[in-house]
């Protein structure tokens, strides 16, 4: 989710006959529900796919600070400001665990950062949308974190040990984030007419971008099958999207807000909602760098990194001096 279009091998799933003996043994461990640990043997493609997936997820947490950070200085009460600060701090912390998990696969955080800054690695499309009113802080928590949880809860069972453990920690905090988002929406939806209008406007703008978070339809994804066999991906994109809609529609009704979809309808037989797909051409535009905020987000990250170079260099130089002095003293 926060890793929407991770291109895995691009090949279909290998059959047992096509696998080497090592690969067969590896697959057997995954099928038996064992966790793969960093020092264990793993196929190169498993490693590469995971680096991309965990890296994209980490980048999303880091870039995700920006749209919410946008409202910290304007939060309407001290308590809301404190909660938002705590939340954004959590996001940065998630980025940190995830980079650490990726590093166990033999890639450095600086390497991944460099790939983010140059645009070679992606982050979730959702963070390329602007946050325009305070209600967006509610909608981001409710919808965006809600969608993230939908994807990350199953990933707690993913086959790679460090990723699975990171997800367990992340999920605990994300459910708090979602609750605080919904709480903001409740206040807005039950507030003054202007607040209610703000809440509806936030839902109108963020609904379809939230549906996009699950990635393109599985029918159009050649990458899913191998990732699912490896238990890097647990559920299909469409399955998760459906679950999200089913969960979110009654929550919107409770708020007295309208989901911006004329085709939304509960299918009594299946118990699932029918709904309109997001505009996938817009999704592709966003991925190609043409979302409303792609340029600002990447510029902000590049500026932070470049402006901070002297700080990182200074602290490294100081640490080296201390280490040298310690050796000299021994």
């Amino acid at each position: 989710m926060y890793a929407q279009v991770v291109e895995s091998t691009g090949k279909s799933v290998k059959s047992p006959e096509e696998m080497s003996e090592k690969e067969r043994a590896f697959q057997a461990r995954i099928d038996a529900g064992e966790k793969i640990e960093p020092k264990d043997w793993m196929p190169d493609d498993y490693r590469k796919t995971l680096i991309r997936q965990i890296g994209q997820h980490a980048h999303s947490e880091v870039v995700g600070q920006l749209p919410e950070g946008n409202w910290i200085t304007r939060a309407p009460t001290l308590e809301r400001k404190a909660i938002l600060l705590a939340k954004v701090q959590d996001e940065a912390g998630h980025g940190l665990y995830l980079y650490c998990a990726a590093e166990t696969l033999g890639v450095s955080r600086d390497d991944l950062t460099e790939q983010l800054l140059s645009g070679r690695m992606k982050y979730s499309s959702i963070f390329n949308y602007p946050t325009l009113t305070w209600a967006d802080m509610g909608a981001v928590g409710w919808l965006v974190d809600g969608a993230a949880i939908m994807n990350q809860v199953p990933l707690q069972r993913t086959s790679f040990g460090p990723y699975s453990r990171a997800m367990i920690r992340v999920c605990k905090e994300e459910s708090f984030h979602q609750r605080q988002g919904y709480d903001i929406m409740m206040k807005m939806a039950n507030g003054t007419p202007a607040q209610k209008a703000m809440a509806q406007d936030a839902l109108n703008r963020l609904w379809y971008p939230s549906l996009m978070m699950f990635g393109p339809s599985d029918k159009n994804s050649v990458h899913s099958a191998q990732s699912m066999a490896w238990k890097i991906k647990i559920d299909s994109n469409d399955g998760l999207r459906q679950r999200f809609v089913d969960q979110t529609v009654p929550q919107a009704e409770y708020l007295g807000l309208t989901i911006p979809d004329d085709n939304l309808r509960l299918d009594e037989e299946t118990g699932h909602y029918e709904f309109s797909q997001p505009d996938w051409s817009e999704f592709n535009d966003v991925l190609r760098g043409n979302g409303p905020c792609n340029t600002e987000r990447l510029n902000a990250r590049n500026k932070a990194w470049n402006d901070g170079a002297w700080v990182r260099d200074g602290l490294m130089a100081h640490a080296a001096k201390k280490a040298a002095a310690k050796i000299a003293a021994e």
Partner: peptide, 12 residues
């Protein structure tokens, strides 16, 4: 500074 600091640990 939120999201704009020199390194992730400093953002936190």
């Amino acid at each position: 500074w939120c999201g704009h600091s020199p390194v992730l640990e400093e953002d936190i």
